[in-house]
Design a protein around this nucleic acid. Structure first.
Lengths: 203, 203
DNA sequence: TCAAAATATTGAACGTTGTTCAAATTGTCA
DNA sequence: TGACAATTTGAACAACGTTCAATATTTTGA
């Protein structure tokens, strides 16, 4: 057996054990605000000790980032899939993305956290940028397919911003139930889609 | 001297001392990320002991909220002023707001923090909502003045979201200087203004 | 098969955080 | 002045992320 194949096997095993910790963390994030989840909780939930977590992650921020990037890849894949099976549609894209955000609270919570405050080490920043750019590319696909003449990248950025802003501005709105928030944010997503759709035709 | 006037005087004195702590905190926020500012730092900077801070604020979150609301009232006032002296203009509003966000990093950092994660006590939530609604009302003024037939409130919400999203999506972009970020976010603000302006005419 | 070397796990301990509260200090009024 | 109230203080506390020497497990080579 060649040595690098053996190393790959070990590498996979290690990745599998890392995923055990990752999944335990994700389960906790489903229950409560991600900022209030502690290393000790994750350790207990994953059935390992505190120290083991630091064997797989340099620090807790990198674990959080791992969860975030997993989600980002998920929505990126979802958009690509949609683009392949149905004709590209701005309203559909907006609905899809905002629906995803509603169903994945921690994703946009972490997005706000990493993009605003994030004191990330350079390597982590690189990973974050790569994944976010990939997501942006998928949005770009649909914007371009909507027949834009002017630089599409700026439009994509603005659209992406608008959709994120919807959640950041209203998702945490107190005294509203989750369905009410979902309804309102999807309504706003519709407004944004309309405005971008008709606003881009006459340029 | 009537007793309530006397009480008012004491009340004002207390408020003045509270402002001393508030200003010390604001000075620190200008230097570094607000999440990394500690109670001990604020105490030292204000020239008081730790305990004194807790005499004026129930907890550090409420101090942060105080700084945030002060900023929110500031931009609200700025918009109202602009609306009174010049003809209402969507592009002007977008530029004004995004410029303010660029010049007040901690404001949108805290906005993200309070609106996403914020485990605020009910009283604080009420204050937050009142001030944010007031800001939204000023945006509503200008949107309405731009001649919208359909429910203006939804448009205002969407516009507000879009502008916030611009900052949240790109303000923390690593490897970019502050002027570069300002230039890019203002460019995106222009796109958003354009899209909303022309997108709303043909509805 | 088995001792040695490598790897993985553990949790007590450390420094720092927000917060509390009894004691000390300062301010107020008869 | 002296007694009472209000304010300030910082040592002490619990909980946090993180470290690391000790322990347990797995892999290696003969």
């Amino acid at each position: 057996m060649p040595e690098n194949a053996w190393n790959d096997l070990k590498h996979n095993e290690r990745d599998a054990r890392r995923r055990l910790i990752l999944d335990a963390a994700r389960d906790l994030f489903a229950e409560k605000d991600f900022k209030s989840v502690t290393v000790r909780e994750i350790a207990k939930s994953a059935g390992v000790s505190i120290g083991t977590i630091y064997n797989y992650y340099d620090n807790i921020t990198e674990l959080f980032l791992d969860v975030f990037l997993t989600n980002a890849e998920q929505i990126t894949h979802l958009i690509r899939q949609e683009y392949q099976t149905a004709p590209p549609s701005l309203p559909r894209l907006c609905d899809l993305y905002v629906t995803f955000l509603n169903d994945n609270m921690t994703f946009y919570q972490m997005m706000g956290h990493f993009m605003l405050g994030g004191e990330l080490p350079p390597a982590a920043t690189d990973r974050l940028n790569r994944v976010m750019r990939s997501l942006m590319d998928r949005i770009d696909d649909i914007v371009k397919a909507s027949g834009i003449s002017e630089p599409a990248r700026h439009i994509s950025h603005a659209l992406f911003s608008a959709l994120n802003g919807i959640m950041i501005s209203y998702a945490g709105y107190p005294g509203r139930t989750a369905p009410e928030i979902k309804a309102h944010t999807l309504r706003l997503a519709g407004v944004v889609a309309d405005v971008f759709h008709s606003g881009l035709k006459n340029n």
